[in-house]
């Protein structure tokens, strides 16, 4: 186990280095740079060439890479070309909004999808199971942004109590207004993006849970428990449920990057002031430092998430022995 962990860790580091190189190269092999976007046509081609030189955009790539990665390791992701502000600061100030949205989406997804998937498995081939399976298929095929637009059109534009952009009314703050006033305000903003995220996220988890439960139900120890004459309820809650949850627990590792990058498009549609908006803008402005930081952070989280998932899996399921 220890040997496995060490090997796994080394692999992870290698992957991370590769990721940093890819993040860097994608941006720098591209035509154009932020100067074009910053200066637009306010600066003549001659002036732009001058600014480009000032930013050191003419240095050889390996040197630019080493400079960059050297600072990243120390936690300095550089400053944005466009705003001149530290990239990390720009990301961190927008992270809370993203976390709030994705956190609640995830809570709702699991609260609904886990029991639904479980019941679906226990009542395999029932009408309930069919409905769940169908809805899950729909959820997977539904274009998220279209669903969002439809909600805006059919609900947002028709009902005054539902907001279609932003995340809070200015001046309505916790501790200033009564609790329920603020709560109502926050819900009116988050409700539509939350519905979209929850609906599209639920499909996968419910199907996963259903499959996992089916797996468990057919396992020998459940049959044994049944044959021992344990009441069905006890078999389900005591044995099956607990064991079926194991693979779900490991999913938490995979959720880590989703917290970060899960809602890019939804944030754009609903003007949710999270990092998704920042990322989309930075990409369109070719603001190198921000885009590289995003790709690097997003990928790093995935790698760490997978690593965690592996470990969690070993912890929760003692039957698995690697090597």
């Amino acid at each position: 186990m220890k040997r496995y962990l060490i090997r796994r860790f080394i692999q992870m580091v290698i992957v991370l280095i590769g990721i940093s190189i890819i993040s860097f190269l994608i941006m720098h092999l591209a035509p154009g740079d932020p100067v074009d976007i910053m200066a637009e046509r306010n600066a003549t081609p001659e002036q732009k060439a001058h600014i480009r030189e000032l930013y050191g955009l003419n240095e050889p790539l390996p040197i630019q890479y080493l400079n960059w990665i050297g600072r990243v390791v120390k936690g300095d992701f550089g400053t944005s070309f466009v705003t001149g502000r530290p990239v990390l600061e720009m990301i961190l100030e927008r992270l809370p909004a993203t976390l709030i949205l994705n956190f609640w989406a995830m809570i709702i997804i699991y609260l609904i999808a886990v029991p639904v998937g479980m019941i679906s498995a226990l009542k395999q081939y029932s009408w309930f199971d069919h409905v769940v399976t169908t809805v899950a298929f729909f959820g997977r095929a539904l274009p998220q942004f279209w669903f969002a637009l439809m909600l805006i059109y059919f609900i947002g534009l028709r009902f005054g109590g539902v907001q279609i952009s932003g995340m809070a009314t200015w001046g309505v703050n916790w501790g200033v207004q009564p609790f329920f006033t603020v709560l109502q305000d926050r819900i009116s903003y988050i409700i539509l993006p939350l519905i979209v995220l929850a609906f599209s996220g639920m499909a996968g988890i419910a199907r996963y849970m259903r499959a996992s439960m089916l797996d468990v139900v057919h396992q020998d120890y459940i049959r044994t428990a049944r044959s021992k004459g344990l009441p069905e309820k006890k078999v389900v809650t005591g044995h099956a449920f607990r064991n079926a949850l194991l693979p779900i627990v490991t999913l938490i590792g995979f959720e880590l990057p989703i917290l970060f990058s899960g809602a890019v498009i939804i944030e754009t549609i609903f003007s949710w002031p999270g990092i998704g908006l920042l990322a989309v803008n930075a990409i369109s402005q070719q603001d190198y430092m921000i885009v590289m930081a995003f790709n690097l952070l997003g990928a790093t989280m995935t790698v760490i998430g997978m690593f965690l998932a592996d470990i969690l899996y070993m912890v929760v399921d003692p039957r698995i022995k690697l090597e």
């Binding site: 990721i19 890819i22 994608i26 990058s261 989309v280 995003f294 790709n295 997003g298 995935t302 790698v303």
Partner: peptide, 14 residues
């Protein structure tokens, strides 16, 4: 793994 790690939407957009 490297390619897989990038959030698809960022990578696509970029």
């Amino acid at each position: 793994e490297m390619v897989m790690s990038f959030p698809v939407i960022f990578l696509l957009l970029t």
